[in-house]
């Protein structure tokens, strides 16, 4: 089981995940990162507090994956 950290960027605001969580299923990590990004984006986009949400996932302190969710109004 590996320790995954989910660092969050909301535009330029950065919130590091110092604690992390132990997960044994990489598909679950992907689902958790996407669901977290989508749920933060839902509030931030509507409130106008951010237009780009990035979830950087670290696995045992090495880069694992990045989820980027952007708002585009045309």
């Amino acid at each position: 089981m590996a320790c995954f950290h989910f660092d969050i960027h909301e535009n330029d605001r950065f919130i590091a995940d110092d604690e992390g969580r132990y997960l044994d299923d990489e598909e679950r990590v992907r689902a958790l990162a996407v669901a977290t990004g989508a749920s933060i984006a839902r509030d931030a986009f509507v409130e106008g507090s951010a237009s780009r949400i990035v979830i950087d996932v670290r696995k045992d302190d090495a880069h694992f994956m990045r989820v980027v969710i952007s708002l585009s109004l045309e």
């Binding site: 969050i8 919130i15 995940d17 604690e19 977290t36 749920s39």
Partner: peptide, 13 residues
Amino acid sequence: GVTNVHTNRILRQ
């Protein structure tokens, strides 16, 4: 109805 990672982010804020 949110993930534990989102909860962690809210508590930090």
